[in-house]
Computed example of a mutant assay.
Amino acid sequence: MLKQRIITAIWLIPLVLGAIFILPANYFAWALVAVFLIAAKEWGRIIDNQCDVTQWSFTCTIGILLIAINLIVPIDAVWLSNQLHPIYLAILYIGALWWAVSLFLVFTYPKSAAFWQNNPMFKSMFGQLTLIPCFVALIALKSISSQASPYYGPVLVLLVMLIVWAADTGAYFVGKAMGKTKLMPAVSPAKTLEGLLGGLVTTMLVVAGVMHYSPEQELGLVVAVTLFVALVSALGDLSESMFKRAGGIKDSGTILPGHGGVLDRIDSLTAALPVFTLVYIAFWM
């Protein structure tokens, strides 16, 4: 399993970095549609693991919504005079509200599952609220321009990914070595409080990198935002684990050997990206 994970990462990471830094923003937005369609098909299994019609219906719904967003808000209209397009901003706020609701659902699981576990409409709505704000946040960050650097937006996308990767990696290794206190056993039995704390500590490496390359930043703010985004990313992971557990699914898919599905790889990002984008707008725009 570990060997498969490493091999997949070797070809996947350059592909992701190439898309972030080399693809023009308009091509990036359309390439994302394909990626999120795969994630949508995987979420369709959460809605109904036995019914292909339900899965494809949800996938088509997500595809129509994402294409509509790209057509209604072209790349050159995403940011105007340092203001995010109102449609994008509204979707991000809705996404942030959803993650507050998701936090409640996770903390009260399995009791919370009583009203949504057997309701395809609710699970479809939850899938839309999980995927669409993440899609919008990725495009919003990628398309930010700066006179100082043409790669300013892509660097922000990479920064969020580094926070999530650092938190995940630290949580994995510290949890394996020292994990004793179960974090939320009803949702994800393997995750521990020690692992979560280890992941938060590991994200300080990202803070050190930011302060090294951009020393004019306020250290306290960078630390606070990094820890907050890392915690939110953990919520994204726990939320997907909750929905998979309720649906009797171990991995969302098999497209990424050793890693599972696309949804398994972006679950933390689905929460971290919208929240980071709103924080960035509040403190740095």
Rank of each mutant, 00 (worst) to 15 (best):
S143R: 05
I94D: 06
A77R: 15
A137V: 05
F107I: 15
I72A: 11
I72Y: 10
P74S: 10
A100S: 13
V136I: 08
S149G: 14
T108P: 05
F122K: 11
Y109A: 08
H85N: 14
L103S: 00
I67F: 08
L92D: 07
A77S: 12
P120Q: 00
F135T: 11
H85S: 09
S112H: 05
A100D: 06
K111V: 09
I94R: 00
D76M: 03
G127A: 12
G153E: 10
P150I: 14
Y93H: 13
I94C: 08
S143M: 06
F135I: 09
V101Y: 06
S145V: 15
S112G: 08
S112Y: 02
Y152I: 02
S149Y: 11
V106L: 06
F115R: 09
P120Y: 01
Y88V: 07
W98A: 02
P150S: 12
Y152R: 01
W79R: 02
A96W: 00
I69H: 15
L71P: 04
F107Y: 12
F104S: 15
P86L: 10
I64E: 02
F104N: 01
P74M: 07
M121D: 07
F115K: 14
W79G: 02
W98F: 13
I64K: 00
L129W: 09
S124T: 12
Q128I: 13
M125I: 14
L89D: 03
N82Y: 14
S146G: 15
F135L: 05
L66N: 06
L141M: 04
Q83I: 03
P154Q: 05
V101M: 11
A148G: 14
G95F: 01
A77P: 06
S124R: 04
L92P: 09
M121T: 08
L97T: 12
N82L: 01
P154K: 04
P120K: 04
L105R: 02
A96V: 01
Y152T: 15
N82S: 12
L80E: 09
F122R: 07
M121Q: 03
S149I: 14
P110T: 10
M125N: 07
V136H: 01
L97W: 04
P120I: 03
N118M: 09
W79T: 13
I144D: 07
A96L: 10
I72G: 04
V78F: 01
